[in-house]
């Protein structure tokens, strides 16, 4: 479904990703883990079109999307739940969801999408007139996920969704992502919470200083070893 081949990217003269090759099959959940500054966020930014890759191929459902702008990539069916949630704090829950369906292709299905999101996260329906900025951390994360679903994506990119949540909430969040997955969405998730995320995904990549150091099936990867590596950074 998604295939990156030898993708290189960076900021100015600085290279944050070197020759990254990665694939996600339809229906799969795949994790990217690695220490701070490894380039995980950069990788998701390249895929969602926020920054352009400097080299390599990036294909999604047979469409070459490398270097295409963000709005085209959303239209192709990739949604991004950015690092730190990035809601529109002064807008209400419903307005935030409406913005998720901003693209013309998504707008016509707005009602239907809204109902699906509310069915998935009933608490959002209860608070539909509340400002996003006044929601609890967990609710904000649900809203961020809900907003991503509004664009009718087939692949969802999550960037550290558990960041800033209390441990109890982290467990609930992973349940929630599991539910999203069961709805049939394909998932690419970046997480620091390696132990938890490996229970959720089928496969995982370990990224270090901008390079893929290791990848394999979540179950097969020697968990201890992997966790240690990801956390210690060596």
């Amino acid at each position: 479904m998604l295939e990156l081949r030898n993708v290189t990217a960076g900021y100015g003269a600085f290279t944050a990703l070197w020759d990254v090759t990665l694939a996600v099959e339809r229906g799969e959940a795949v994790a990217v883990v690695g220490p701070n500054g490894a380039g995980k966020t950069t990788l998701l930014r390249v895929i969602s079109g926020v920054i352009a890759p400097r080299g390599g191929d990036f294909v999604f459902e047979d469409a070459p999307l490398g270097g295409r702008p963000a709005h085209e990539i959303v239209a192709h069916g990739i949604a991004h739940v950015p690092e730190g949630r990035r809601l529109f704090p002064a807008l209400t829950v419903t307005e935030n969801l409406k913005m998720g369906a901003f693209l013309r292709s998504a707008r016509k299905d707005f009602r239907d999408s809204l109902e699906r999101v509310y069915a998935l996260f009933p608490v959002l329906a209860e608070r539909h007139r509340q400002r996003a900025g006044s929601l609890s951390g967990g609710e904000q994360q649900m809203l961020a996920v809900g907003r991503a679903l509004m664009s009718r994506p087939r692949l969802i990119l999550f960037d550290e969704p558990s960041m800033g949540l209390a441990p109890v909430m982290v467990l609930r969040l992973f349940d929630l992502i599991r539910r999203v997955r069961e709805e049939g969405y394909t998932i690419l998730i970046v997480e620091q919470n390696v132990r938890q995320v490996l229970k959720l995904v089928d496969r995982a990549y370990l990224l270090e200083v901008g390079r893929v150091k290791m990848h394999g099936r979540a179950a097969e990867l020697s968990e201890q070893d992997f966790v240690r590596k990801a956390y210690v950074g060596l």
């Binding site: 709005h71 959303v74 990035r86 529109f88 998720g100 901003f102 693209l103």
Partner: peptide, 14 residues
């Protein structure tokens, strides 16, 4: 949306 958060706006395809 842009006035609130440009990155978020870009992420929904604006």
């Amino acid at each position: 949306a842009i006035g609130e958060d440009e990155t978020a706006a870009a992420s929904v395809g604006i």
